[in-house]
């Protein structure tokens, strides 16, 4: 029974996504590339010092009982 629900959920999700994304190819970026100069400023880099960030995450994980959920999802400003 659980497998059936998961399968139905998966199919519905795919259909929903296909429907909602069918026009994505035509989405116009509402922040144009030439408007991203501020986002490209180094002070806006989400992980400007990766070696320092990973060290501090290690310190917090050693001193607290929580972990995860803090990673920058990569990417950046897409200015190039």
């Amino acid at each position: 029974m659980e497998k059936r629900f998961l399968a139905i959920g998966w199919v519905l999700s795919v259909l929903l996504l296909m429907g909602s994304l069918s026009g994505c190819g035509n989405i116009e970026p509402w922040v144009k590339p030439y408007e991203r100069d501020r986002l490209a400023d180094p002070i806006m880099a989400l992980d400007g010092d990766p070696v320092s960030t990973s060290y501090l995450q290690h310190v917090y994980e050693a001193r607290e009982g929580a972990r995860g959920g803090e990673g920058a999802a990569g990417g950046g400003c897409g200015c190039n």
Partner: peptide, 17 residues
């Protein structure tokens, strides 16, 4: 994770682990 440019002054991330 999702990184999203919201405006020309604002960028945001949402992460689930």
């Amino acid at each position: 994770g999702l990184t999203q440019i919201l405006t020309k002054n604002l960028i945001a991330t949402l992460n689930f682990e």
